[in-house]
Design a protein around this nucleic acid. Structure first.
Length: 599
RNA sequence: GGCCCGGUAGCUCAGCUGGAUAGAGCACCAGCCUUCUAAGCUGGGGGUCAUUGGUUCGAAUCCAAUCCGGGUCACCA
C-alpha cells in the first residue's frame, strides 16, 4: 500500500474515533502530496468534513493532526493552513523505507499472477518498409508488454503480418514488369525497401495510366478501374487465391525479402515477438465462425448470398461479414484471428495496438464476438493511438512525405555521435563501446520522444525537435544515471550493492528537503507503474522518470554526496542515489531504453 | 449529418477519479564549471486552461450547449 493510501485509512480511523456519530466515507478523504511552498509531506483536505462534523476547519485539523501524530507514530508534526492539514512524515520512516527497498531491482512491480494477456502490435503490411508512424505503434506495444509483465501479467507479444491482399500484388506486378530479376542480393538493397520501391513504382505507373485515360476523355472513376496495371494486379490476386504455383512462389520469395528486412529493423529497434501470425494462414478461419453464427441465427444472409450482422439496436449499422462470392473481408479474418488467439493462449485480455482510425472497426469486432457468444469478446481491448503527423501535414506514404524508420534510426545514432564528439566526452572509451553508446543514446531519444506523449493524442513529429538531446528527453535521464554511476564508481559502491554494508550507518535524523523530496518520489514509483498499466499509458512513466532525474540533478548541484557533512549523511545519500538509479533503470527498461554507466 | 477523440504559455506537451498562487521542455533574457560528468543547475519574462452557462465551500478537471480541429460511418485493408 502506498503511503498516501495508508494516510487515508489512518485519517478515516482517526475520524471514526474522534467523531463516532459522523460517518465519514473513505472516498471523502482526499490526500495529496503537500505543495512545495508549504511545510509538510502529505496533505489532508479538511473542507469535505465541515458539514458532516459541523466544526471549523482549524478545529478539525487540530484534533485530527494531534490524533495522527500521537497514535500512528508516522508523523513528526503538522501545520494547518487555510483548511489544509499538512502532515510531516518522520525522518525515521523515510530512512527505513530506503533500507527496505534501495537494493530491490524489482521495486515497484506487482507479484505475478496467472492472468494472461496478449499484446498485438506492429502488424505490418509486406509491401513496404516500416515508416515513422509504425514506430509509435511498435514502441507502444513493446512498452505496454513490459509494463503489463511488470504488473503481474503473463504477456504474449504478438505480431500479425498482413502478408496477402492487393497491396502485395501491386509490388509483385511492378517487380515482374520492371525489375529485370533484381533481388536484395543483386542490388544490395534491403529487402523491404526493394519491395517498397516497386510498390512506389506501381503507383507511379498507375497514376500515369489514369492520367492518360482521363486525357483521352475517360471519367476518372472509370479510369481507375480500367488502368491496365491495376487490372493486372487484380488478376494476380485472383491467381493467388486460386493457389497458382508460380504466383505463390513469387509471393513467397518477395515476402521473404521483406521479412529479412523487417527482422533487421526489429533487431535494430530492440523489438521481439513471442508469436507471429500470418494473415494468409488465418484469413479463412473467420468463415467458420460466420457459418456458426448463421446457424445460430445471429447473422443473416441476403439474396446475393452475402452474410451480414445487424448492429442497429446497438446504435450501429449492418456490417458485411462475407461477400456474395463467399470470400472474406477484413472483419472476417479478424474474427478468426481473435478466436485463434483466445483458443491458443486462453487469454484474459487481448490488447490490439492499432491507430485510432480503426476505433470503429474494433468496436464492431468486439460487438460481433459478443453477439456470437464467443468467450474472447470481453477481453478485447483496443489500445488506440493518435496518428503521427509532420509539421507540414499528415504522413502518407503515397505523398512522399513519409519518414522511413531505418533512416530515422540512422539519423538519431549519427546525431548522438556528433553530439558526443562535440562535447569531448569520448575519452576512455574503446571504439566498440562508443558505437554501442551512440546507439543507446540515439535509440533512447527516439523511443522516448514517441512514448512521452499520451497515446490517444495525435502527435506532431517535428524532425528538428525530435533530435534535440536536451531537456525532456531520454538523454537527460541517461545523463543523470551516468552521473550517479560515476559517483558510485569513485566511492567503490556497486550499482546494486549489498544492503548489509549500509545497515550500520543508518542513524541519520535530520533529512534535508531535497533528500526527502527524492525519497517521496521514489515512494511513489509503484503507484506510477500501476497506473500506467491500468490506463495503458506509458507516457506517465516517461514523465515520472524525467522528474526523478531532474530532482537528482538539482540535488547533485546543491549538495555533495562524496563530501557530505558526515559519514552517516554520505551513506544515506549513497543509498538514495543507488535507489534513484535503480528506479530509473527499471522505468526506462520498460520503455526499451538502456541507461549507460558512462557517457 | 450520426458516433468517437482532442482544444492548456510563441512551439511541443504534463496536470483531468474536483483542492492551496495552473506546471515542464524548447525558444528568449540574466547568472553558475580551480570542488562528485555544464548532455547540468539557479533565476526571469510569457496564460481569458476554446467560448458560454450550470453543479459547490472550491472547477483546467464534473455536466450541458456552442465554436474550432481530427477520425470514422466501404462487397478497401
Amino acid at each position: 500500500m502506498t503511503l498516501a493510501s495508508q494516510i487515508k485509512h489512518a485519517a478515516k480511523d482517526a475520524l471514526k474515533v474522534l467523531y463516532p456519530d459522523a460517518a465519514i466515507e473513505l472516498s471523502t478523504i482526499s490526500v495529496n502530496q503537500t505543495k512545495p511552498e508549504f511545510n509538510g509531506d502529505y496533505t489532508v483536505v479538511l473542507f469535505p468534513f465541515l458539514k458532516l462534523l459541523r466544526q471549523k476547519p482549524d478545529a478539525i485539523g487540530k484534533q485530527l493532526g494531534d490524533y495522527l501524530v500521537e497514535k500512528t507514530g508516522l508523523f513528526s508534526g503538522y501545520e494547518i493552513v487555510r483548511g489544509f492539514l499538512n502532515l510531516t512524515v518522520t525522518d525515521a520512516h523515510w530512512v527505513s523505507f530506503l533500507m527496505n527497498h534501495f537494493t530491490d531491482a524489482h521495486y515497484g512491480e506487482r507479484s505475478k499472477t496467472d492472468r494472461r494477456v496478449m499484446v498485438e502490435y506492429s502488424s505490418p503490411n509486406t509491401n513496404k518498409p516500416l515508416h515513422f508512424g509504425h514506430m509509435r505503434n511498435i514502441f507502444l506495444g513493446a512498452a505496454m508488454s513490459e509494463i503489463l509483465r511488470a504488473t503481474g501479467n503473463q504477456v504474449v507479444k504478438a505480431n500479425l503480418i498482413n502478408d496477402r491482399g492487393i497491396h502485395i500484388c501491386k509490388s509483385m506486378i511492378a517487380w515482374m514488369r520492371y525489375a529485370d530479376g533484381a533481388t536484395p542480393e543483386s542490388t544490395g538493397i534491403k529487402g523491404d525497401h526493394l519491395v517498397g520501391d516497386y510498390y512506389v513504382k506501381f503507383n507511379d505507373v498507375y497514376k500515369e495510366e489514369i492520367a492518360q485515360l482521363v486525357a483521352g476523355g475517360m471519367d476518372e472513376k472509370v479510369a481507375e478501374k480500367e488502368s491496365a496495371i491495376m487490372k493486372d494486379a487484380q488478376e494476380l490476386l485472383r491467381k493467388w487465391e486460386d493457389g497458382d504455383k508460380e504466383v505463390r512462389d513469387l509471393w513467397q520469395m518477395m515476402n521473404g525479402w521483406v521479412y529479412e528486412g523487417f527482422d533487421e529493423s526489429y533487431k535494430r529497434l530492440g523489438i521481439s515477438f513471442d508469436k507471429v501470425y500470418h494473415e494468409s494462414d488465418t484469413y479463412l478461419l473467420g468463415k467458420k465462425i460466420v457459418e456458426g453464427g448463421l446457424r445460430k441465427g445471429v447473422l443473416f444472409k441476403k439474396e446475393d448470398g452475402s452474410v451480414w450482422v445487424d448492429l442497429r439496436e446497438d446504435g450501429l449499422d449492418e456490417k458485411l461479414l462475407l461477400r456474395g462470392d463467399g470470400t472474406s473481408v477484413y472483419m472476417t479474418q479478424d474474427l478468426g484471428t481473435a478466436k485463434l488467439k483466445y483458443d491458443e493462449f486462453k487469454l484474459n485480455q487481448s490488447v490490439y495496438v492499432i491507430a485510432d482510425e480503426q476505433n470503429y472497426h474494433i468496436q464492431v469486432l468486439k460487438l460481433i464476438m459478443k453477439k456470437l457468444g464467443e468467450p474472447c469478446a470481453d477481453g478485447i481491448y483496443h489500445l488506440s493511438y493518435g496518428m503521427v503527423e509532420l509539421p507540414t501535414g499528415k504522413m502518407k506514404s503515397r505523398e512522399g512525405t513519409v519518414v522511413d524508420a531505418d533512416d530515422m534510426v540512422s539519423e538519431m545514432i549519427n546525431l548522438s555521435r556528433e553530439q558526443t564528439e562535440q562535447s569531448g566526452k569520448t575519452e576512455g572509451f574503446a571504439q566498440d563501446e562508443l558505437a554501442k553508446l551512440y546507439e543507446t543514446i540515439g535509440m533512447g531519444a527516439l523511443k522516448f520522444y514517441l512514448l512521452r506523449v499520451d497515446p490517444k493524442k495525435r502527435m506532431i513529429f517535428d524532425p528538428k525537435e525530435s533530435i534535440d538531446l536536451h531537456g525532456y528527453t531520454a538523454t537527460f535521464i541517461q545523463y543523470a544515471h551516468a552521473r550517479i554511476c560515476s559517483i558510485l564508481r569513485k566511492e567503490n559502491v556497486a550499482i546494486s550493492p549489498d544492503c548489509t554494508k549500509f545497515q550500520s550507518f543508518v542513524q541519520v535524523t535530520e533529512l534535508l528537503p531535497l533528500e526527502k523530496k527524492i525519497m517521496l518520489a521514489l515512494e511513489e514509483y509503484p503507484l506510477i507503474l500501476s497506473d500506467a498499466a491500468d490506463e495503458f499509458n506509458p507516457s506517465s512513466i516517461c514523465n515520472y522518470s524525467f522528474q526523478l532525474a531532474q530532482m537528482f540533478n538539482t540535488f547533485y548541484d546543491a549538495h555533495s554526496i562524496s563530501k557530505a557533512e558526515s559519514e552517516e549523511k554520505k551513506q544515506l545519500r549513497l543509498m538514495i542515489i543507488v535507489m534513484t538509479a535503480s528506479v530509473l533503470r527499471h522505468a526506462m527498461h520498460l520503455m526499451g531504453i538502456r541507461l549507460p554507466e558512462k557517457m
